[in-house]
């Protein structure tokens, strides 16, 4: 499959601050997840590939064409920024039509596209309200609407699920998958692993401006499995639960705390551990308030990868 987006030795400095360092990659059609903690360089990377900032070194090409200063190319890209970018005193409708009028659409086309996009993100009923009165989720959906209203081939979404309620999140995820089915190229950035997991298996991991890992999302999962998983259980009798698990070979370590009703297990085999827990809880009649995995997040994966 041909690469839609290509970067070669892409680097960006903000004065002495390194934004992105020597990133060479190819992004193909479909959904690609860009993962990284805050400050990893995700937004910088997205702004570089949308031609908003000039690379310090290297270059970006979309469909073989250099992006920097290639204004006609921008008509094929839809960009949803992370931060809010609205005039509060405008209505949703005015916002959409004013941005669509920057393309070569006729007046009627601008209006029909704005209508369609607002309908798509279910803001059609609120289109005449001032953006000032929109909730965080509505603003997020409006940002998404402006990114897709001109029917771009390449859609760049910077943290599009931030601030959305579960229903809206589901809708946006469905929407992104629809674009994938339509043969478009979508890049979605996020620092929340499950969000990306729900969207795609192809990911790029960024850390401190560098690519840490690329490929299938299960690679990351496997990586977690090579390290003991931490599972915290908050229950009525943590010591009893611990004593019943102390002889289990998959349990490597048991720690009490941080609270008096919490016990933290370290296990090599998470699936087996989760298979044991329900039976023990029932057998010993222990009331369980909460089971969490403190290291089952992106930050923990990064920590493992960078060898912290």
């Amino acid at each position: 499959m041909t690469a839609v987006i290509q970067t070669k030795n892409l680097s960006k400095w903000y004065g002495n601050v390194l934004g992105l360092s020597d990133v060479s990659l190819e992004v193909e059609q479909g959904v690609t997840g860009l993962l990284g903690p805050n400050g990893a360089g995700k937004s910088t990377f997205l702004k570089l590939i949308t031609g908003q900032i000039k690379p310090s070194i290297g270059h970006v090409a979309i469909q073989g064409q250099d992006v920097w200063n290639n204004y006609p190319l921008f008509g094929r890209i839809g960009f949803c920024p992370e931060q809010d970018a609205f005039y509060d005193e405008m209505t949703g409708w005015e916002f959409m039509t004013s941005l669509l009028s920057l393309y070569s659409f006729s007046r009627a086309d601008v209006q029909s596209r704005a209508e369609k996009a607002l309908d798509f993100v279910e803001l059609d009923k609120d289109k005449d309200r001032l953006i000032r009165g929109y909730s965080r989720g509505m603003r997020q959906r409006l940002k998404l609407a402006q990114a897709v209203a001109h029917d771009p081939e390449i859609i760049i979404l910077d943290e599009p699920l931030n601030g959305l309620d579960p229903l809206s999140k589901r809708k946006v995820i469905r929407l992104i998958k629809d674009y994938k089915e339509a043969g478009k190229t979508v890049i979605v950035s996020s620092h929340v692993l499950p969000e990306i997991e729900a969207l795609t298996r192809t990911i790029i991991l960024l850390h401190q401006g560098k690519i840490l890992a690329r490929g299938d999302i299960h690679y990351i999962r496997d990586l977690i499995d090579k390290h003991p998983h931490m599972i915290s259980v908050k229950c009525s009798d943590p010591r009893r639960l611990a004593s019943s698990l102390v002889g289990e070979p998959s349990v490597l370590n048991i720690q009490f705390g941080p609270g008096p009703d919490t016990v933290v297990f370290e296990t090599q085999d998470r699936d087996k551990f989760f298979g044991l827990i329900p039976r023990l809880i029932v057998d010993h009649r222990i009331d369980v308030e909460e089971i969490t995995s403190p290291d089952d997040n992106l930050q923990a994966v990064f920590d493992y990868l960078v060898g912290k």
Partner: peptide
């Protein structure tokens, strides 16, 4: 100043606008 305040420049410059 409103474009700077509302971060609108990124929306303008991700479109075919010099």
């Amino acid at each position: 100043c409103d474009d700077l305040k509302y971060n609108s420049l990124q929306l303008y410059f991700s479109r075919p606008l010099r």
